[in-house]
Design a protein around this nucleic acid. Structure first.
Length: 561
RNA sequence: UGAGGGAUCGUCCAAUGGUAGGACACCUGACUCUGGAUCAGGCGAUCGGGGUUCGAAUCCCUGUCCCUCAGCCA
């Protein structure tokens, strides 16, 4: 167990697991589970639970099951069970043959319910939902016993069997645990454990018309699977006594331990499935995998790597205090990973034409460029250079401000891996005043980018050769929301807080080596950022998504004025 | 104001009676054929008030603030 050997401090959960293992609890066995409800796509918040559940199991030589918590057919769909598995695998975790469904325990769960009735610990209640709410009491007042609470065991059994047989309409009756209507913990006030639902289930079809509630199904599923440590988020803290109550009441031989941790909150996104679904349904984004979505599918399409997300989770830690992690930590994690692995290429996002007046008309040179300065084994490639080029519009100013090092009339800069060039003149569009063409001269002695006389330039620009470049649609993504917490201010709607420039599309010119780039490949466009090939790409129709921009010192200087 | 939780740099996480530390962010500087990366440095916190102790983020008392729970959702 590598994590335990290091001096690095353990989080509170690992401290508990570590102790349990050392004390030989559960024979020193560690068995966890990741229990998603298949009612939406997995998001970055789930990745915290996934890395915790699968990660701890791996660290202690244990196992982690994947179990779909599919006890509510009205909200769950197969589309989600497929995407969830794909996303977990993509993240780098594996459950071998331990793919389970709460729904495959429906038979045994039903038996447990009958057993509870036999024990006098459950009863069929005829109260309507509204009545039940009234009987439940409030946070400060105790509830009242249901008038149906003292039915005989035989009657309860008969009624429950008839519920199962489909003799009653939906909402007509429920099975409730008989606990304590005066409990200060609302969860313990005779909670519902089975309800009638005639919606077909995505796995069991119409076999059942009664479905167990979460509290009943979850603890028993954990017990059935021999789970030792059952991690969940803070909002289930109040439910822990009920989790334990069911296991105690049914005298199950194996007692899993529920431990709660704080869920992940991230700035500049929304994380609830409800709000994410709304963004999808109202067309704010193109789908669950829109690159601006914090879903794993969206982040994958944006160009995030599994490594970067695992690293992120390792860095945020695990604790019980509610918190909100800064989005910039996520960005740091992708940049760090992509910096190591992404090949460098040159691409001009907003092309400005440059004519090298003293360069021979028809000459083409193949210049050697380094693929990844962080990884010598990535090798080099040839980039074609010719008389007519594109550089970035941002890299030229007629009147350069202070600290602006790039090209301007009379100024000399380096074209990366190519030549030093000096700008002599420029042409403008008479209508708009916009600069249309730059006329430059190059110094043949600086071929490759080095000056034999030791002359220095303050800037190195990326460029592409006009006649060799290929066009590409580049999607410049940014954070979906302009505020840190879009849910903080109830007077502001979600749409009012969207970042108006979360997506900007430009027609770029990129170097020809990108011609056969496969979907999902990661690149760094030098001086711009990290990009990935979108699945919308077609032969001859490259589409790149900007995963994250490079840190931009000049942008900061400029912003400060 | 019932019950259950929680409060440490701007943010996230450590320190479990013994020098409050790390990461991100931010600011300097060095270096640089990416204003990237890297390197060096800096800024910056124990919710308030009492108490115990040689010594308190940690233990005790007290106050404050925040989160969760009144679904036949999970």
């Amino acid at each position: 167990m590598p994590a335990a050997e290091e001096a690095a401090p353990l989080d509170f959960i690992r401290t508990i697991v570590n102790q349990d293992v050392q004390q030989g609890i559960n024979d020193g066995r560690v068995h966890t589970r990741f229990p998603p409800e298949p009612n939406g796509y997995l998001h970055i918040g789930h990745s915290k639970a996934i890395t915790l559940d699968f990660g701890i199991a791996a660290e202690y030589g244990g196992l982690c099951n994947l179990r779909f918590d599919d006890t509510n057919p009205t909200k769950e769909e197969v589309e989600y069970v497929d995407s969830i598995q794909e996303d977990i695998r993509w993240l780098g975790f594996d459950w071998d043959d331990r793919l389970y469904y709460a729904s495959s325990y429906f038979g045994r769960l039903y038996e447990c319910a009958e057993q509870l009735i036999q024990l006098g610990k459950a009863f069929v209640c005829d109260l309507s939902p509204d009545e039940m709410r009234e009987y439940r009491g409030t946070l400060t007042e105790p509830g009242h016993n249901s008038p149906w609470r003292e039915r005989s065991i035989a009657e309860n059994l008969d009624l429950f069997r008839r519920m199962k047989a489909g003799e009653f309409p939906e909402g007509n009756r429920v099975l409730r645990a008989k606990i304590d209507m005066a409990s200060p913990n609302m969860v313990m006030r005779d909670p519902v454990i089975y309800r009638i639902l005639y919606t077909p289930h995505h796995r069991t079809g119409t076999e059942w018309c009664i479905y167990p509630m979460y509290d009943f199904a979850h603890c028993l599923s954990d017990a059935l699977e021999g789970i030792t440590h059952s991690f969940c988020t803070l909002e289930f803290e109040n439910n822990r006594p009920l989790y334990d109550w069911f296991l105690e009441a049914l005298s199950v031989p194996h007692r899993p331990q529920q431990i709660e941790f704080a869920r992940l909150n991230l700035t500049h996104v929304v994380m609830s499935k409800r709000l994410l679904r709304r963004l999808v349904e109202d067309g704010t984004v193109s789908g669950w995998d829109d690159p601006r979505m914090p879903t794993l599918a969206g982040m994958r399409r944006l160009g995030y790597t599994p490594e970067s997300i695992r690293d992120f989770n390792a860095r945020i830690g695990v604790a019980k205090a509610n918190s909100m992690v800064d989005f910039s930590l996520l960005e740091y994690c992708v940049r760090t990973d992509l910096n190591k692995i992404a090949p460098r290429v040159m691409g001009v996002l907003r092309p400005l034409k440059v004519i090298i007046d003293n360069y021979p008309e028809d000459q083409v040179e193949e210049l050697q460029a380094i693929n990844n300065p962080e990884d010598p084994s990535a090798g080099t490639r040839a980039v074609p250079f010719s008389r007519e080029l594109y550089i970035e519009q941002d890299d030229f100013r007629i009147d350069p401000p202070p600290k602006y090092f790039r090209l301007a009339p009379g100024r000399e800069v380096r074209l990366r891996y190519a030549y030093f060039i000096t700008c002599n003149s420029y042409e403008t569009d008479p209508a708009t005043g916009e600069v249309t063409v730059l006329h430059c001269t190059y110094d043949p002695a600086t071929r490759g980018g080095d000056s034999p006389d030791g002359r220095k330039v303050k800037a190195t620009l990326h460029w592409v050769s006009e006649r060799h470049a290929i066009g590409a649609e580049v999607r410049l993504f940014d954070r979906l929301f302009s505020v840190a917490d879009p849910t903080a201010d109830a007077s502001q709607s979600l749409s009012e807080q969207l970042n108006p420039s979360s997506l900007e599309v430009v027609q770029a010119q990129v170097e020809p080596s990108l011609g056969d780039a496969p979907v999902g490949a990661h690149y760094q466009l030098e001086r711009q950022g990290y990009f990935t090939v979108d699945r919308d790409s077609r032969p001859g129709q490259l589409v790149l998504n900007r995963t994250v921009a490079l840190r931009d010192t000049w942008a900061k200087i400029e912003q400060k004025g």
